[in-house]
């Protein structure tokens, strides 16, 4: 069972729809016993970093997620969920994240020269993989990464910033694979297979 971590923020319905279509059992929950029995965790999220971190702490999910991470449980963060896996964010002042991805910080896209924010739309990716990927993005902040070895995908535009990170059991994506048509299905299949959740 894949558990979609329920901390009250995010479009869980869309993720459930896509996983169900791929015949993967999943459930939205924030109960300790569900998380502990999970085959993998998905941290969704839409909203502000500070608010997200606050809710995670209120529910005591930070300790559980950190512990399960040490046991190498596959964890996928999407959008805000991905940003929460980084060390910190500068959205609405400095806030610490879960810190699962060392050397990664969440910073303002304006730093890259964007004039209109949030950035909303479909963006092609540059990866080392054979497939071509195009994902729906909607974000005001991005994961600034000082460790090249974590980066699996960057945007294929003049900004070339990282949007797909991976370190062992942890995957963090800035885009919304659950809303990205066939590219999204490909992404989830890949993640499920690589983490041996699905054959």
């Amino acid at each position: 069972m894949v558990i979609i971590v329920d901390y009250g923020m995010g479009n869980a319905g869309s993720i459930i729809n896509m996983l169900s279509k791929l015949d993967v059992e999943c459930k939205l929950s924030n109960e300790t016993h569900d998380l502990e029995k999970a085959r993998a965790l998905i941290l969704p999220g839409v909203g502000s970093f500070a608010q997200g971190m606050l809710r995670i702490k209120e529910l005591g999910l930070d300790h559980i997620i950190t512990r399960l991470h040490l046991n190498k449980l596959p964890i996928l963060g999407i959008c805000l969920g991905a940003q929460l896996l980084t060390e910190s964010s500068e959205e609405h002042g400095f806030n610490k994240g879960l810190g699962l991805l060392k050397g990664v910080k969440t910073v303002d896209l304006a730093e890259l020269g964007f004039s209109k924010l949030p950035r909303i739309g479909w963006v092609n990716l540059k990866t080392d993989m054979s497939e071509s990927f195009r994902f729906y993005h909607v974000h005001r902040f991005f994961m600034k990464c000082s460790r090249k070895d974590l980066i699996l995908g960057i945007t294929d535009d003049i900004y070339s910033y990282p949007v797909w990170l991976n370190e062992e059991n942890v995957t963090a994506v800035q885009f919304h694979p659950e809303k990205s048509h066939r590219y999204g299905f490909e992404f989830f299949k890949k993640w499920l297979i690589e983490n041996q959740i699905k054959e």
Binding site: G113, S115, R119, I120, G121, W122, V123, H137, D157, I158
Partner: peptide, 10 residues
């Protein structure tokens, strides 16, 4: 000027 062509949506 920032080029945002790729994000334009219909």
């Amino acid at each position: 000027m920032v080029n945002r062509e790729s994000d334009k949506r219909v």
